[in-house]
Design a protein around this nucleic acid. Structure first.
Length: 863
RNA sequence: GCGAGAGUGGCGGAAUUGGCAGACGCACCAGACUUAGGAUCUGGCGGGUAAAACCGUGGGGGUUCGAGUCCCCCCUUUCGCACCA
């Protein structure tokens, strides 16, 4: 073993040629199309790792690369850990950009989209992502969207899809309706500067509110989701418990006995209600206005104020305005008649669009009452006051719910909580109100007046009215050659061959629905399709879902925290209730990675700070590009792209490569006695090194290797700080270079070199697949690295013999002692007191206390 | 305004449980090898000092033998929500 190891001369071309190596392995992988294929298996443990599928815009950006680099590293690690891994990819390929491109370039959306998919798929393959392409899902193709239509029919049958005329969000630039979830701060989610307009349209809705409670409740099950996302969904659902109370208008409006219903969470304050406030859009107002042109103008002005505030983005700070309608409404609790106003701070979309105004106990009502001189009547006192102080009124408005009622008839002296119960009960008994739960969540409007989406499988018949198609008539194929404009209504309405059809019921002439579905329908269930992507009889086979679901790890941007992820949860619950699947939730663990930024700002074409993945791959290779995206920051944080950083990774990979080149299998075989190099590490276990004692240098390297395996493994299993994984491997490689002389003079045995080379290839495999495969081969291995067992560390080999312990005097570092890792408290203390620097620091002082933390530190307290 | 996260060298970031602050990488400086170096290898690199001392994790207080880490107050910043009755 001590024979000298021949070193290979170092020719100029020893630089690692990433392009050549990556091309070599690309070709090998291409010729084996089933490399990453997975099949449901009755006994193998499964792992479903999923990255959010991209919109095929034409080119990947760095955010995609980062997302997929994380997912791919995890998938590869799980393969190496023995799991049956499902790692699919697809295309969220319906949507408006294809139509915009069509208008701009005069290219049909289908052609443009499929071209983009081809280009991006090529990029993904070049980056070496290990996807099972046999399961590819392309949502704009009929073999996928026919199941959207199928689900729609099921939803319609179940009463969960319905059509109604309603006020909807309209983006003039998209020339279509938007779901509530697609309106961000009053602006279109695709056009940040475009205020959303309100229009009255007939629309298709999905009754997601049926699941509002379950969607909220089951958030508790999602412990593997970021707290932030759960909170966002909780706020979005916005469940609020309260009481609905009917105020009688005393026949002053419309039919005698008509009422205004208000929703309140604080029915206990109702004796303090001194007015009713209506949203300007409240339907009862049209009855009130009658021929009062002045009032009509004032109400319209309130609506205009709301619109302006929404457009300037400060709807939250709108200056409150209101107008008295001239009507009075009777408070059913005390019979008092109070004025009915219309105010611009009341929202029609929430609750009943009407409130009882209690200025003494609500900030907004207080502000309004002050401005218009309405009565402010105190009905709640803080209950925690001392006896003598109970008569002191609190500063108004007093909003806490921990008080006690006063001036509230028979309910006076009750606590707020008791009063809410008793008063709600009274309202129910007397029939003028009831306990109510309201949600901020609204039904999901899915109609889009666009071409490039899934046709809705409904027809309008003059005789039978609205008729659903039969399943056998699916798919309704989206026609090609449709003239696309962003003006006026659905493009499909201008295609007679599409529009005109026959009624499935009576066979007479009928017209098809010309709206298409929101693309979020496509992405609400696509990950189920991956489990059985080529099924042409059903969206999927339930048994396959039972095996693969729930998704073990879903990875994507936090921007989908509400839209996509709440719709997906809804769809899962609906499919479960249909009996198609058994799981309640689609995703076990969710990971939201940070953004990729450059020069302090998100990469964008406008800022000109976009870094192209293609360029990086061409310059540094796919491995370096991927690995840098893992190294530059922990994956949950934003990543600041610095080109000099990727050069560092490139340098590192070259350093690793040269180690294999210099101590190649051939030179090692020359040097070592026959048979001393163990056969390929089929078990992943360290070869036995017991044969003869190791040199100190060899032992140190072996220890470092096992420590590195330990660190990398624990990061993969736990917190996914790939940056520290890579740093650990860099340290190991630095140590190898630092032991150069030990390598050349034979103190590092061949067997250890082999172990180092095999294990480093394995450790790098999830993060830098190309070079790892090359290194694996260079280390003399012929097995498939993708499924080679992940290396195991041995605690005994990772353990330090001697450790360096800091010694503090009064909490300040004064010395370092080197002791055996087995050293006890007494040994540590003696060694610490014997240290010259420590002695100097405590000289002439009295030792008050000695704190010894085993294996960590010693602190001597002196006075 | 409410909620959540973040603030550490010139830069990206380490420090997993209260125990040597700055791992690893970049940038920079020096050296080696070289016809050459934008390759490679070695060393240095928070401030401060001749060397020490000392000072250093946004600011101020506190708990502790010991605080980047825990507690209180404040500042800055990112993200989400925002008249939700």
């Amino acid at each position: 073993m001590n024979l000298e190891i021949k070193t290979v001369s170092t020719p100029r071309d020893e630089r690692y040629n990433a392009q050549a190596v990556e091309q070599k392995w690309s070709e090998r992988w291409r010729s084996n199309s089933s490399l990453y294929a997975a099949e449901a298996h009755p006994t193998k443990p499964k792992y479903y790792v999923l990255e959010m599928l991209p919109y095929p815009s034409g080119a990947l950006h760095m955010g995609h690369v980062r997302n997929y680099a994380i997912g791919d590293a995890l998938a590869r690690y799980m393969w190496m850990s023995g799991y049956n891994v499902l790692h699919p990819m697809g295309w969220d390929s319906f949507g408006l950009p294809a139509e915009n491109a069509a208008i701009k370039n005069n290219t049909p959306p289908r052609q443009w989209t499929l071209g983009n998919i081809a280009a991006m798929k090529k990029q993904m393959k070049r980056l070496g992502f290990a996807y099972d392409w046999s399961r590819e899902v392309t949502t704009c193709l009929p073999d996928y969207y026919r199941w959207n239509q199928w689900f729609f029919l099921k939803l319609y049958e179940a009463g969960l899809a319905y059509r109604k005329k309603s006020r909807v969000n309209w983006c003039p630039q998209c020339a279509t309706v938007l779901a509530n979830e697609q309106v961000v701060g009053g602006m279109c989610w695709r056009h940040e500067d475009q205020p959303v307009e309100q229009r009255e349209l007939e629309q298709w809705f999905l009754r997601i509110t049926k699941y509002a409670d379950e969607l909220l409740r089951d958030l508790d099950k999602l412990q593997g989701w970021p707290e932030k996302v759960r909170t966002m969904q909780q706020n979005w659902i916005g469940r609020s418990e309260g009481t609905q109370v009917d105020f009688d208008l005393g026949g002053t409006v419309g039919a005698a006995g008509s009422t205004i219903s208000v929703f309140t969470t604080r029915v206990d304050t109702i004796y303090g209600a001194t007015s009713i406030q209506l949203a300007p859009q409240h339907p009862i107002i049209s009855d009130m206005i009658g021929r009062d042109a002045a009032l009509r103008a004032q109400v319209e002005e309130l609506i205009a104020q709301q619109r302006r505030a929404r457009e300037t983005g400060d709807i939250g700070n709108i200056e409150k305005h209101g107008v008295f309608t001239g009507r009075l409404a009777k408070n059913p609790f005390n019979g008092e008649a109070i004025p009915v106003w219309v105010a611009n701070y009341i929202l029609m979309d929430y609750g009943t669009g009407a409130i009882m105004s209690v200025p003494a106990h609500d900030e907004r009502d207080y502000e309004f009452a002050k401005k218009y001189g309405l009565e402010i009547r105190l009905v709640i006192l803080p209950s925690n006051m001392d006896e003598e102080e109970t008569m002191t009124a609190p500063p108004l408005p007093y909003t806490p719910i921990d008080g006690m009622l006063v001036n509230s008839g028979e309910f006076s002296m009750l606590s707020c909580a008791d009063a809410i119960k008793k008063m709600t009960q009274r309202a129910e008994e007397k029939g003028f109100g009831k306990a109510t739960v309201t949600y901020r969540l609204k039904d999901w409007g899915i109609s889009r007046q666009r071409y490039w989406g899934t046709p809705i499988p409904m027809v309008y018949c003059d005789k039978d009215g609205l008729v659903a198609l039969n399943e056998k008539d699916l798919p309704v194929i989206l026609p090609d050659n449709v003239p696309i404009t962003l003006a006026g209504g659905s493009p499909l309405a201008s295609v007679p061959e599409f529009l005109n059809t026959t009624c499935p019921k009576c066979g007479g002439p009928a017209r098809r629905e010309t709206d298409t579905m929101d693309t979020f329908v496509d992405s609400s269930w696509y990950f189920y399709r991956y489990a059985d992507a080529r099924n042409d009889k059903a969206p999927f086979d339930g048994a396959k879902i039972d095996y693969w679901f729930p998704i073990d790890q879903y990875i994507g941007g936090v921007e989908h925290a509400i839209l996509h992820l709440i719709y997906s949860r809804f769809w899962t619950k609906f499919m479960r209730d249909m009996g198609l699947i058994k799981n309640d939730e689609p995703v076990q663990r969710l990971f939201t990675q940070g953004m990729v930024i450059k020069d302090g700002a998100k990469m964008s074409k406008n800022l000109g700070n976009v870094v192209s993945p293609d360029e990086m791959v061409a310059r540094y290779g796919a491995d370096a590009t991927r690995m840098y995206s893992l190294f530059a920051a922990p994956p949950d944080r934003d990543l600041d792209w610095q080109e000099s950083g990727i050069e560092g990774i490139q340098r590192f990979l070259g350093r690793v490569y040269r180690f294999y080149l210099k101590y190649s299998v051939e030179t090692r075989l020359d040097a070592a006695p026959a048979g001393s190099v163990p056969p390929s590490g089929e078990t992943g276990q360290a070869p036995s090194l017991q044969a003869e004692p190791l040199s100190n240098e060899a032992r140190a390297l072996q220890r470092k290797l096992h420590q590195t395996i330990k660190r990398v493994t624990s990061d993969f299993q736990g917190r996914w700080h790939f940056n520290t994984c890579i740093a650990a491997i860099m340290e190991l490689v630095n140590d190898i270079y630092g032991a150069e002389t030990a390598f050349t003079d034979g103190r590092i045995p061949s067997s250890l070199i082999g172990e180092l080379q095999r294990d480093i290839a394995l450790l790098l495999a999830p993060m830098a697949p190309y070079i790892s495969h090359e290194l694996w081969e260079m280390a003399g291995e012929t097995s498939n690295l993708l499924k080679a067992p992940w290396p195991k560390y041995e605690a005994a080999l990772a353990a330090e013999d001697e450790i360096e312990i800091p010694v503090q005097v009064n909490g300040k570092l004064r010395g370092l002692i080197v002791v055996s890792s087995e050293a006890g408290d007494g040994d540590l203390e003696r060694a610490a007191l014997a240290d010259a620097k420590v002695q100097a620091a405590i000289a002439g002082k009295q030792v008050v206390k000695k704190i010894v933390v085993p294996k960590k530190m010693v602190n001597i307290v002196v006075r």
